[in-house]
C-alpha cells in the first residue's frame, strides 16, 4: 500500500466573471512509497500548491482521486495520520508558541497531559526553546516556519506534507530542517515536500516528481534519474603536445597546464585515452559528468529530452564554462 497515491487529478479555476477557465492540474498521477522522502519539484505556478491543497481537502478536484494509506484523503481517519505545513504559514498572532501547539494538539483529540509533554518536546526539537511563551506576532519568518513544522508533527504523523518548507529559512534553519526530515525518515515516516530550491531537494530526496504546467513530467528515484543522465565525459591529461592532442580530439581546453577534453557521452572514451597514452600523454582523470537534478529540471523546462541544458554548456560539444556551477573541472 502506498503512503500517498494520486490518480488523474484535475483542477481548474474560473475567472473573469466565470467566463475563462484555467486548467491548473491536467491529470496528475503520482505515488509515494512508505518511508521515503519524495520531492515535488516545479517552478512557480506549475501546480505544486494546488496539488497539495487537493490532497488536504482545501480544494475540491474536478476529477481524480487521492488516497492516503489506502484511504480517501478527505476522511478524518486519513487526516489523523497526516501532518501538514502550508506554504508561507500564518498562525494566530495573539497566541504564544505553546498555546498554538496545544490548540493544534486539541484538534487531534490528544489528551491535555500528553499534549503538554509532546509540545515541550517539539518546541525543543524545532529549536524554539526559550521562545515558547512569546506571542507569535513577535516571531520572525524563520521562527514561524519552525513552529509550522512543529505543529505538523504534533500528531506524530505517518505522512508529512510540507509545502515549500525551506522558504524563509536561513542556512542554519535549512540545515536543521534537512536533518529533521532525514531523522523522520529514519523513524519510518514518509515525507512529501514541494520546493523549487533544488539544492535542498538533491541533498535528501529518495524520489522526485517534476511538475510542469499541471502535469508530472518525470517521476522516479533521484539516483536513477541522475545515473541515466550522463551529460558528457571529461578526460584530463598532460605531458602531450597540443597539436597531437588536437588530432586525437579537437575539443580541448587548457587549465593549470592540464588539458581537458570534453567528449560526448556516447563517444569511444577508451580509444581517446589509448591514443593519448600512445602519444606520450598522461591521463590524470576520466570524469563522467552526470546531470544534476537542476540539469534535469531545466532540461524538462526547456523541453529537452535528455540533452545538455543551456545553463551548463552550450550543447555543441564545446567544454562547459568552468565559471558556471555545472562546469566541473
Amino acid at each position: 500500500m502506498k503512503a500517498l497515491e494520486i490518480k488523474g487529478l484535475k483542477k481548474s479555476f474560473r475567472s473573469n466573471f466565470l467566463i475563462r477557465k484555467y486548467n491548473i492540474l491536467k491529470g496528475i498521477d503520482l505515488d509515494v512509497e512508505k518511508g521515503e522522502i519524495y520531492g515535488f519539484l516545479g517552478p512557480n505556478g506549475a501546480g505544486k500548491t494546488t496539488t497539495i491543497k487537493c490532497i488536504m481537502g482545501l480544494l475540491s478536484p474536478d476529477a481524480g482521486e487521492v488516497q492516503v494509506d489506502g484511504r480517501p484523503a478527505d476522511t478524518a481517519a486519513a487526516r489523523q495520520r497526516i501532518g501538514f505545513l502550508p506554504e508561507n504559514p500564518y498562525f494566530y498572532d495573539y497566541l504564544t508558541a505553546r498555546e498554538f501547539l496545544l490548540f493544534s494538539a486539541s484538534l487531534f483529540n490528544i489528551p491535555e497531559k500528553e499534549a503538554r509533554d509532546k509540545v515541550a518536546a517539539l518546541i525543543h526539537r524545532v529549536g524554539l526553546s526559550g521562545h515558547e511563551d512569546l506571542k507569535l506576532r513577535k516571531f520572525s519568518k524563520g521562527m514561524i516556519q519552525r513552529l509550522g513544522v512543529a505543529q505538523a508533527l504534533v500528531n506524530d504523523p505517518d505522512l508529512l506534507i510540507l509545502d515549500e518548507p525551506f522558504s524563509g529559512l536561513d542556512p542554519v534553519g535549512r540545515k536543521d530542517l534537512r536533518l529533521l526530515i532525514l531523522a523522520l525518515r529514519e523513524q519510518g515516516k514518509t515525507v512529501f515536500f514541494s520546493s523549487h530550491i533544488l539544492q535542498d531537494m538533491e541533498l535528501m530526496v529518495d524520489r522526485v516528481g517534476i511538475i510542469l504546467d499541471g502535469t508530472i513530467r518525470r517521476q522516479g528515484k533521484l539516483s536513477e534519474l541522475v545515473a541515466r543522465s550522463t551529460q558528457y565525459v571529461e578526460v584530463v591529461c598532460d605531458r602531450i603536445d597540443r597539436r597531437e592532442l588536437a588530432r586525437i580530439h579537437p575539443d580541448s581546453t587548457v587549465r593549470d597546464n592540464q588539458f581537458i577534453l570534453t567528449l560526448a557521452s556516447d563517444a569511444d572514451v577508451n580509444l581517446v585515452v589509448e591514443s593519448i597514452i600512445h602519444n606520450g600523454g598522461r591521463i590524470l582523470a576520466v570524469n563522467p559528468v552526470k546531470m544534476t537534478l537542476e540539469d534535469i529540471f531545466f532540461s524538462e523546462m526547456t523541453g529537452g529530452a535528455n540533452g545538455i541544458p543551456t545553463s551548463r554548456s552550450n550543447g555543441t560539444g564545446a567544454p562547459p564554462d568552468p565559471a558556471t556551477p555545472g562546469g566541473k573541472p
Binding site: 488536504m56 482545501l58 497526516i82 501538514f84 502550508p86 498562525f91 484538534l107
Partner: peptide, 14 residues
C-alpha cells in the same frame, strides 16, 4: 484571508 483556516481544516476537523 490570513489562511489560518488551512491549519484547522487540514486536521481531522470537518
Amino acid at each position: 484571508e490570513k489562511k489560518t483556516v488551512f491549519n484547522i481544516l487540514s486536521k481531522p476537523v470537518s
